[in-house]
Amino acid sequence: MERSELEALLDPRVLAAIDDEARPETPADVLARSTALRRAGFAPEQAAAVLTQAALRRRARAKFGEFADRMLFTRAGLEQATRLDVAARHAARFRSSGARTVADLGCGIGGDALALAAVGLRVLAVERDEVTAVLAQYNLAPFPEAEVVVDDAERVGLGAADAAWIDPARRTPGHADTKRVGAADYSPSLDFADRVAARLPTGVKLSPAHDRSAIPDGAEAQWVSDRGEVVELVLWRGGLERDGVRRAALVTGPGGTAELTASEDAEDEPVGPLGEHVYEPDGAVIRARLIGDVARTTGTRPLGPGIAYLTGDDFSPSPFLTAFTVDAVLPFDARRIRTELRARGVGRLEIKKRGVDLDPAAFRRELALRGDEDAVLIVTRTADRRVALLCHR
């Protein structure tokens, strides 16, 4: 979004039209709605702003719920924003620590700042990109205790802030198409985050794929999974880390929230024979290297050496595991698998793999599926061979 687009967006008539606009579902709808808006007196750039924001608000409901219906977005800003239910848990940690004012350094469109303000904290939201900062100011307008400042996070004075939230894993530029950057290009930099954490209670939001060897000693590393997707790694430091917790996997979703914590990486259980059930640990558990703890608490065992699947004979429900019942054990041979699938009438197949070189899309074409039944195919390694496990959830 360029400045001219922002100016078109902030016209009061445009903002009112966005509130009234339903998301067009097809290209024909877009054309029809654009024509109708033009006939109603909107300039081309204003009509485009109305339709773009209506579509982004629809997408944003997955992250922001009803809050999305009064927010403004860029595509990049929405992609980068923390999901509101996750941000709310972070905000609760700040409030429980006794913090009163939190500096949100690299606030983007204001998603984290919104959650912080919603629990009664004062927020200094800093964003160096002027266009993005204006959208953050609009989104935070219902919270007078949130102040948005256009500045470089590494130069701004923190004033009365007694805690900090830093999002250095930025894609750049902040309001155009997203472009992932490496740790050396983070803004604010990781060195800056270290300096802030040495003075203030600090949470640092990073990519879940962040180099584990770069996690500072003494930090609590919390991987967060939301609805089955690992969305972030947060390093809690400066007093926000919990006693005795250095690794955590937080899993949220429609069924509720569960968390697994440990003082260090968990030791794996010994590999055992294939049982009646196979379990896929949540990605946050895998990232946190806590599979061994889940195995011990559920009575399961690794399916193969270095393979992030567990197995067991008794069904072991867990919020940290997705369970599959094994219907057939097959060699990893396309013809044998195709014959079995056709005998069972499987036409819809979910393919999962670990420890095996396999292109699921190409393999699916090779299987030439036909039928009305659903199944899951897990292609992996046991202690002594490659196998294809035909399963159902």
Rank of each mutant, 00 (worst) to 15 (best):
residue 21 E to F: 09
residue 290 L to R: 01
residue 2 E to M: 11
residue 247 R to S: 05
residue 234 V to C: 04
residue 46 Q to R: 11
residue 261 T to M: 11
residue 133 A to V: 06
residue 267 E to V: 15
residue 220 E to T: 02
residue 237 R to G: 05
residue 183 A to I: 03
residue 296 R to K: 14
residue 314 D to P: 00
residue 227 R to Y: 04
residue 55 A to K: 07
residue 22 A to C: 03
residue 331 P to S: 11
residue 35 T to M: 06
residue 216 P to L: 08
residue 309 Y to A: 05
residue 6 L to I: 09
residue 3 R to K: 14
residue 132 T to K: 00
residue 195 R to A: 15
residue 273 P to D: 13
residue 11 D to T: 11
residue 120 G to W: 12
residue 89 R to D: 08
residue 308 A to V: 10
residue 23 R to E: 11
residue 309 Y to I: 10
residue 360 P to W: 02
residue 106 G to R: 12
residue 77 G to P: 06
residue 13 R to N: 09
residue 290 L to F: 01
residue 172 T to V: 13
residue 64 F to L: 14
residue 25 E to G: 13
residue 165 W to G: 00
residue 391 C to Q: 02
residue 249 A to R: 10
residue 187 S to E: 11
residue 257 T to H: 06
residue 152 D to H: 07
residue 137 Q to L: 08
residue 368 A to Q: 14
residue 153 A to V: 09
residue 116 L to S: 05
residue 105 L to R: 07
residue 46 Q to N: 05
residue 84 L to M: 06
residue 89 R to W: 01
residue 257 T to K: 05
residue 270 P to H: 12
residue 165 W to S: 08
residue 66 E to P: 01
residue 337 I to H: 09
residue 211 D to Y: 10
residue 280 E to N: 06
residue 188 P to S: 08
residue 150 V to Y: 03
residue 386 R to L: 07
